[in-house]
């Protein structure tokens, strides 16, 4: 096993891990009770999954074709830059549009803050 084969294997492994991660996160998306909890699954673990995959791909290309893909790196940066913001905006929109919390969530801490501000 030479260096490139190891790189190839590592890349593939990362990709596979990304896949597994992704399925887990989507499982979360399905199983979690409300949008606020689901957003964790969607934004955090999914991002990790894609990070793993892209990294895997990057390593793979690097090791097989000795090709450093700027686009892949940019892609990783980009996903990391945008995914949290998107998640943030979405959840805020959800809250603003009065999406109910799940019953098990206990109290809505933000409610008082916002309404105090209004008063």
């Amino acid at each position: 096993m030479n260096a490139s084969e190891i790189g190839e294997f590592v890349g593939a492994l990362f990709i596979l891990l990304g896949g597994i991660m992704s399925v887990i996160s989507v499982y979360g998306l399905l199983r979690l009770p409300d949008v606020y909890t689901r957003s964790h699954a969607a934004t955090k673990s999914s991002t990790l999954a894609v990070l793993l995959t892209l990294l895997g791909a990057f390593i793979y290309f690097w090791s097989t074709a000795h090709f450093i893909s700027v686009r892949l790196l940019l892609g990783i940066v980009f996903v990391f830059l945008t995914a949290p913001v998107a998640g943030h905006l979405l959840v805020r929109a959800a809250y603003r549009s009065n999406v109910k919390l799940a019953d098990i969530s206990g109290t809505d801490d933000l409610h008082d803050v916002l309404h105090k501000e209004e008063k």
Binding site: S25, V26, A42, S46, T47, V50, A57, G75, A83
Partner: peptide
Amino acid sequence: DVIGVNLIASIAV
């Protein structure tokens, strides 16, 4: 959004 992310991954793969 999740689908988008997964598509990105798929394309990479």
